[in-house]
Amino acid sequence: MSTRHVLLGLLAAGPCHGYDLKRQYDARFPQARPLAYGQVYTTLQRLVRDGLAAVEGTDSDGGPERTLYGSTDEGARELARWAGEITAPAPFVTNEIFAKVVVSILVAAAAARTGQGGPDAAAHLRAQRAAHMERMRELTALKAAPGADLSTVLSADYALVHLDADVRWMTTTTARIDTLTAEVHAA
């Protein structure tokens, strides 16, 4: 997720200071990792540097003085461009898991030649599947909790369908691991 554009989007509602931006971000994207304050301020400074945001003043609200940031016209144009841009239908984590499976098969073959034990690709897939299922249980508990708001449900759903795609792929791959092993050895 482009933190830069999401912060710019939050600024579209009106000037805001870093602390409130962080709070809004964490509330609107409960499944994302909470933003670090440092990242919020670094991102805001870069947005100002690039002319997409500007310092609009300060408020103290009885406490320490805080800088208010607002979006510029250029920032609004950039936001519209980004929001309308189609996200590349890129593969997600499957690629890394697939790479590990193939490497496991190669290493196991090399180890077998020297009479040593090597990694077990099928066992790796089982362990990966267990880790995926554990995360899916956490997300499901979050969205099925009484009173869960729709933002929480939809963002958990997004993660769940992607994890589910990985699990389906792992199931198919586990069932075909012997054929894959033969193919990797033959290549």
């Binding site: 066992a123 089982r126 599947r129 267990a130 899916m136």
Partner: peptide
């Protein structure tokens, strides 16, 4: 057979060819 439905459970066992899969 659906992982998203299984995720409602407290835990999962994986059945393969009539036996509980080792490691699952």
């Amino acid at each position: 057979h659906d992982a998203r439905t299984a995720a409602y459970a407290d835990r999962e066992v994986w059945l393969r060819d009539g036996v509980v899969d080792p490691g699952a």
